[in-house]
Amino acid sequence: MKSQESNPSGEKRIGLLNHGFLIVWAIISLFPLVWMISTSLKENNEIYTNPGLLPRNVLNFKNYADAWMFGEFNVYFMNSVLYTIVIITAVVFFSSLAAYGLSRLKMYGKSFVYYMFLASLMIPIPGVFVAIYIVVYHLGLGNSRMGYILPMIALSLPISIFILKSFFDEMSKEIQEAAIIDGANNFYIYLNIMLPILRPAIATIIILNMLSVWNEFSLALILFTDNAFMPIQKGLSVFVGQYSTRYELLMAATTISIIPIILIYMLMQKQFIQGLTAGAIKG
């Protein structure tokens, strides 16, 4: 009886320790974000004279306007918006079609195709940059938006197909069989039955691939010779000079650059968490 009575207090201590650890971890994780926003609201000379997190003028948004126009940062930002929308749309469409076919349709050699996709995940992405460069320029797509978009789609497909196929495999086959009995074809089943059920998985691949596309810079640096096509990472580098760095503008531009990611995550947070936990729940 004594051991049973002592369990609640022990569990309470463990709970307090867990919550304390999570609070400390949250503070450590959020501090760089708070410091970045604080620095973006300071004047240039204030960065060196005011080490505190609270700027003298908390409503100083001039740095954001200056950062938006400085060094054509707005052009780089809109380039990344365009690339992200086109690439994510294509990846969701093609990966969901491929995953549906590999999971639900009877095709000769589909297991071999699927394992080839999985094998490509073991190859480091920078390891194929030379091959991508050669193929792109042989196709006459060098220094063009399409020459950047197509490789990015190809690089994003394997992990997306892997995630979506796992979800398709878990779905009840009775749903598909009932639709076939009612006269529905495979594309109708995919578009009107499977995709709505697949929203958590789609939200997962949208967020994961958006992070990858939005932060990508190495491939763009290899394929583009014209700065007008460069993504947002090039825009952030213009604030770093050889002899000086405009930290207030750099932090303002960085704050602007993370806004789309935060908005997308907030809109899809529920579906994203469902997608990440679905496998554990089903298991």
Rank of each mutant, 00 (worst) to 15 (best):
E177L: 10
K234T: 12
I175Q: 15
Y243D: 14
A252M: 00
A253R: 02
A178L: 09
M194S: 15
V213C: 07
I180K: 13
L250K: 02
S212N: 09
V213F: 01
Y190M: 14
L191D: 12
I262A: 14
I258T: 11
N192K: 13
Y247V: 05
L223H: 05
I256L: 15
A228C: 06
I175N: 12
L195P: 10
L236A: 11
L219R: 03
I206V: 13
I197F: 11
G241L: 03
L263Q: 11
I261W: 08
W214P: 07
L219S: 08
S244D: 15
I261P: 09
I256A: 10
S244W: 10
G235C: 03
Q233L: 08
L208W: 11
E177D: 15
L195C: 06
P260M: 02
L221P: 11
E248I: 00
I206E: 00
A201E: 07
L223Y: 02
I258D: 11
S212K: 07
L221D: 14
A253Y: 04
I181H: 08
M210F: 07
R246G: 04
S244R: 04
I181N: 13
M210K: 04
A179R: 05
V238K: 03
F224S: 04
L236R: 03
T245G: 04
L236H: 05
I180T: 13
V213K: 01
E248W: 06
Y243F: 14
F229C: 03
L211Y: 12
Q242I: 00
I222T: 12
T245L: 01
N192P: 03
L249F: 11
N215V: 01
I262F: 12
I262T: 10
N209A: 01
F217R: 04
F239V: 01
I206H: 00
I175T: 10
P260T: 01
P231T: 03
D226N: 12
V240C: 09
S257A: 15
M194K: 06
S257P: 06
D182V: 06
I180H: 14
L250M: 12
N215C: 03
K234M: 12
T255K: 06
I206L: 02
F229E: 07
T225Q: 14
I264F: 05
A220K: 02
P196T: 08
I206M: 02
L221C: 06
